[in-house]
Design a protein around this nucleic acid. Structure first.
Length: 851
DNA sequence: GAATGGCCCGGCTGC
DNA sequence: CGGGCCATTC
């Protein structure tokens, strides 16, 4: 074992604030750790120090991480530092995994059986659906999603069905659903994600419970990573654990708080010192991860944020490249550009798994995936349609869950007639009613139900056969290992027959997915055995439920595609940040005209930028097809916050090819500068002027030019940058002419029509890239044959009409405006900026040149 | 009871 | 655009 004495810092090469934090022993401490400032090292070394220097028994230390992957990584590092013997007994895990582990220890104290299941969103919906049916609640009046959302919100604040007090009529129904929901979960011996934490919290706070007392004494040191994303219940948990010792050590960065929407409360970290008088505070402000330009870009974006713990990130790293801000025509053009840069980087020796493509929402991944596929670039997608969400995988899991816990009605209903056993909806409904009357689970009721009145011979027989099957499998469960049991389920349930009878690629793919699931059960068994624990089905099912998107990230040489949320805590040599457009990033929700939380979006952008170690590309598309329609979005306001000195505008080849001649044409600046108003940001807050920021950009502005930005609201989305950078005035910024090689492949404009992506192209065997062993089958269109290169270039309508970006035009209603861009359909339209309006898409025939 | 087609509606981020 | 739900039909 490594002895870590006073020379800890020197041994590890830590900076002095890092040493200060790592050496901290007793009492509360908060570490404000900027992005890339080495916080994981600090936590790891502090634990090592506690174990080695202070001789704290490992099982008395709890370290809470944000993902299972981070937990595994931390344990791995600790094993290297202090040896396996010590690291093995540490409690390292996410809040959810830790609570699940504790609940399996004290199930009875919470009214559970140790075989309890964790219900996911789908299960929650299924349970609630039943309640709606049984109680005749109208989904139109009380949308199920909203009711579940409300329940979720309440539970995150520590409120359960029995404590929920309705405030109005609507809430009376919610209270009714809430109670019924909790009851049904209890009857099913199941918990949802929130319960996992709530149950432990209740136990911990129960002064009369001996188990609670045990829990309060259990840990002498608690460490929490990513503390800025902790919610109220999680905070109460850690307070409960450290009530006696006060040894609570938290690490976080309020600038990286991106989970407010799921209950996280930044105020918890900001108020930490008030909650814990005498708490030590350390700030880690040196970034070791990124180039100076990347850090400058990140700072530019975050320094405008409204509330922040004062801190200044800095770096001693080299400047690195200027950050290309890439202007693309469409999402397809954007993807093509991304593919080019990936290929280039890989050819230059960057490992594929050091490359990441980020997007704000999963829906953006599809096109990227298509292009990477057709370009034969290896990739993996994190999150999105997850493996465990596929129907066949869920079916097999449902069988396994039912075998573990026969009280789980949602699982029974899911598979009782899959594959088809001639047990129809009517029979299932009758069974449900029968079970309800007897107050038992559906599975337990089958036996008697078969012998009850009013059931015809056919369903009787079918049910009896199903029961026999389950009993048979159940006896296998007693002896067979989990993976073997899963295999028997697939065989004996008839699932395999059902799929092979499909006789299609689809059936084949589904069988492959099942094989992979069984394979992963096998992996789980091996891991458990290696750790000296018995591999049981409960353990595997729990892992399935608690697997985070990031946990799927495999250490294989593939480019990683993920949402920015999923990227939290990770780092890559090369980051391509796509979709930097208003309404995408910052995202604007469609419903209720809610403006969304721009501040959180800003922090999210900060997280995205700070993931990059060496190279960062920021892309935006002028036109984007998303959710079935085309949007023309303004460039993201966050682009305007990146200091001019560290960026460099780049025009995609496609855009250059389509209207290159306009890009370089000198143009008289419009008499009245186009005001690029955004749809709603001004509403957010009429607070401080952006004087500070303005001065940062002052080199750009000519002498005597009015400080346009200064008078505008802080988050008002004023991009003084863009009147220059946008097509019309590009030449004013910087020559962009020869910076990029022109690849004929990508010079054709992106798909203007749908014909290019005919479905019939999909899934020809051998059409896609070779599939590596273990690679998941992706049930998506593979339009390898329809990629951009085969498409006809769009007509240069701009030339035909004498209109181009920057042209001043006249409209009957809106008056004089400036053309921003043009669209190339049969009936061409132009995006026009009229002073005082949001940019409008107007058919060219309604416009006329100004003169 | 199963299979198919049409229609409506939501559409983000995730343990 | 796509998933889920309903109605129609065999």
């Amino acid at each position: 074992m490594v002895e870590l004495g006073a020379e800890l810092g020197e041994i590890a090469g830590l900076s002095s604030p890092q040493i200060q934090a790592a050496r901290h022993e007793k009492g509360p401490m908060v570490v404000f750790a900027g992005a890339g400032s080495g916080k994981t090292r600090v936590i790891t070394y502090r634990i090592a120090n506690l174990l080695a220097t202070h001789r704290v028994p490992p099982y008395r230390v709890l370290a809470v991480t944000f993902t299972n992957k981070a937990a595994a990584e931390m344990r791995h590092r600790l094993t290297k530092l202090v040896g396996e013997e010590l690291s093995r007994d540490l409690w390292v895990g996410t809040f959810h995994a830790t609570c699940a582990k504790l609940l399996r220890r004290y199930p009875a104290a919470c009214g559970l059986k140790s075989s309890f299941l964790v219900y996911d969103d789908d299960d929650q919906r299924a349970v609630m659906n039943r309640i709606y049916k049984d109680q005749g609640i109208d989904d139109k009046k009380f949308p199920l999603r909203q009711v579940l959302g409300r329940i979720h919100k309440e539970k995150q604040e520590g409120v359960t069905g029995t404590d929920f007090i309705p405030g109005n009529f609507m809430e009376r129904t919610i209270a009714q659903c809430f109670q019924a929901y909790d009851e049904r979960l209890r009857a099913a011996n199941a918990v949802d994600f929130d319960d996992l934490l709530l149950y432990v919290m209740r136990l911990l706070e129960n002064k009369d419970s001996p188990e609670g007392e045990e829990l309060r004494k259990k840990f002498s040191y608690v460490l929490v990573d990513e503390f800025q994303d902790v919610n109220r219940v999680q905070y109460r948990l850690v307070r409960g654990f450290t009530e006696k010792t006060q040894n609570l050590f938290v690490v976080g960065d309020d600038d990286q708080s991106i989970y407010r929407w799921r209950g996280a409360d930044v105020q918890i970290v900001r108020n930490f010192r008030h909650d814990h008088p005498g708490a030590s505070i350390v700030k880690l402000e040196q970034n070791y991860r990124s180039t100076a330009n990347v850090v400058a870009a990140a700072l530019g974006v975050i320094r405008v944020a409204r509330d922040r713990e004062p801190k200044e990130l800095w770096t001693a790293n080299q400047a690195g490249e200027k950050i290309p801000i890439v202007f693309c025509v469409s999402e397809r053009d954007e993807a093509a550009y991304v593919a080019e840069r990936i290929r280039e980087a890989m050819e230059a020796g960057t490992p594929a798994n050091e490359i990441a493509v980020f997007y704000r929402i999963h829906a953006q991944s599809r096109v990227l995936e298509e292009v990477l596929r057709s370009e034969r670039l290896p990739y993996q997608i994190i999150g999105g349609m997850r493996f465990f969400e596929r129907a066949e995988v869920k079916d097999l899991v449902a069988y396994l869950r039912l075998l573990t816990n026969p009280d789980s009605d949602v699982d029974l209903v899911r598979i009782i007639n899959v594959p088809s056993r001639k047990i129809g909806d009517t029979t299932v409904e009758k069974l449900a009613a029968f079970a309800r009357e007897r107050g038992s689970s559906m599975f337990a009721a089958i036996e008697d139900f078969i012998h009850s009145e009013g059931l015809t011979a056919q369903p009787k027989k079918a049910l009896a056969r199903f029961l026999a099957l389950m009993k048979d499998l159940s006896s296998s469960a007693a002896t067979a290992a989990p993976a073997e049991l899963a295999e028997r389920v697939v065989e004996e349930s008839g699932y395999r027959d059902m799929l092979s009878r499909l006789d299609s690629d689809e059936g084949e793919a589904k069988l492959q997915n099942l094989a992979e699931l069984i394979g992963s059960i096998g992996e789980f068994e091996e891991e458990a055995l290696a750790q000296g624990t018995v591999p049981n089905l409960e353990g595997f099912l729990e892992r399935v439920a608690l697997t985070a998107a990031q946990d799927e990230l495999k250490d294989v040489p593939r480019v990683c595609l993920m949402t920015v949320h999923a990227a939290k805590g990770l780092e890559f040599d090369l980051v391509l940040l796509t979709g930097m457009e208003e309404d995408i990033f910052p995202w604007r929700s469609q419903d209720n005209e809610r403006p969304g939380d721009v501040e959180e979006e800003r922090r999210l952008a900060y997280v995205a930028i700070t993931r990059a170690k060496k190279h960062l590309f920021v892309l935006h598309a002028e036109r984007r097809m998303i959710f079935a329609n085309t949007r023309y979005n303004q460039p993201s306001r966050f682009l305007g916050d990146i200091p001019r000195e560290v960026m460099r505008p780049v025009i995609s080849d496609t855009m250059r090819a389509a209207r290159g001649r306009f890009i370089d044409r000198p143009m008289a600046p419009p008499a009245e500068p186009p005001r690029l108003a955004f749809r709603s940001p001004a509403a957010s807050s009429p607070s401080t002027p952006r004087v500070e920021l303005d001065s940062v950009r002052s080199p750009v502005r000519a002498e005597g030019e009015p400080a346009r930005a200064a008078a505008r609201p802080a988050s008002g989305g004023t991009l003084e940058l863009f009147p220059d950078v946008r097509l019309g005035g590009l030449r004013m910024v910087e020559p962009v002419g020869d910076e990029l090689p022109v690849r004929p492949n990508f010079s054709a404009p992106a798909a203007p029509t749908r014909q290019g992506f005919v479905r019939s192209m999909q899934q020809r065997p051998g059409a896609g890239p070779e599939r590596a062993p273990g690679e998941r089958f992706v049930e998506r269109d593979d339009d390898a044959g329809g990629s951009s290169s085969s498409l006809r270039p769009r007509a240069r309508i701009s030339a035909d009409h004498g209109l181009g970006p920057g042209t001043r035009v006249l409209h009957k209603t809106f008056g004089t405006g400036v053309v921003l861009s043009l669209d190339g359909s049969a009936d061409p339209a132009a995006m026009v900026q009229f002073p005082g309006w949001t940019p409008k898409l107007i058919k060219i025939r309604f416009l006329q040149p100004e003169e």
